[in-house]
């Protein structure tokens, strides 16, 4: 395999890297994390093994850098209050909220990793498992737990603002 111009990596993966950063950060902070990600990747590019999956590599760096920026900004993850569990349907469901990143950032490490790698970056579970250092089954479980937790909190918050 040939070593490709780094600019091509930025062109091809710039969007997914930004989304991964944005999943746990507001816009301007996501910009900083995006830049930190590609700068770190550029510095380590000569050590990237030729058989590595470039997208998974960049997505991992992005998630780490985004959490760094999150913590640097003094946004220590606030543990989510326990919300009573309620049954959740299996149908398509979209999680959208202007402050969603706060909730995602507050998930426990493994759940957050699984949710971001799978549901934001769209990586297959086999790869998510590699990145998290667990089995594919455990990765699936963590992602499901994370999503369930996000839904419960979003539902709880929506109900709070209702009269």
């Amino acid at each position: 395999m040939t070593v490709r111009p780094f600019d091509l990596l930025v062109a091809e993966h710039g969007t997914v890297v930004w989304r991964v950063c944005r999943a746990v950060l507001p816009e301007t902070d996501a910009d900083d994390a995006w830049s930190d990600t590609f700068l770190a990747a550029l510095g380590a590019y000569d050590r990237l093994r030729p058989d590595s999956d470039v997208r998974a590599w960049l997505v991992t760096i992005a998630h780490r850098k985004a959490i760094d920026v999150h913590r640097r900004a003094g946004r220590a993850p606030v543990p989510l209050a326990e919300v009573p569990e309620r049954p959740v349907g299996e149908d398509a469901f979209e999680l959208a909220d202007p402050e969603l990143w706060r909730l995602v950032a507050s998930l426990p490490d493994k759940q957050r990793g699984a949710v971001v790698y799978r549901h934001v970056a769209g990586l297959p579970y086999a790869q998510v498992a590699d990145l998290l250092g667990c089995s594919a089954v455990a990765a699936r479980r963590s992602a499901a737990d994370g999503i369930a937790r996000l839904r419960r909190h979003l539902t709880a918050e929506t109900q709070e603002v209702q009269p």
Partner: peptide, 19 residues
């Protein structure tokens, strides 16, 4: 399930790449 995280958009990416 999808998480609705927005895309950066072309203009933002151009600025980011310059930076």
């Amino acid at each position: 399930t999808t998480i609705d995280v927005p895309d950066p958009g072309a203009d933002r990416l151009t600025d980011l790449r310059r930076g």
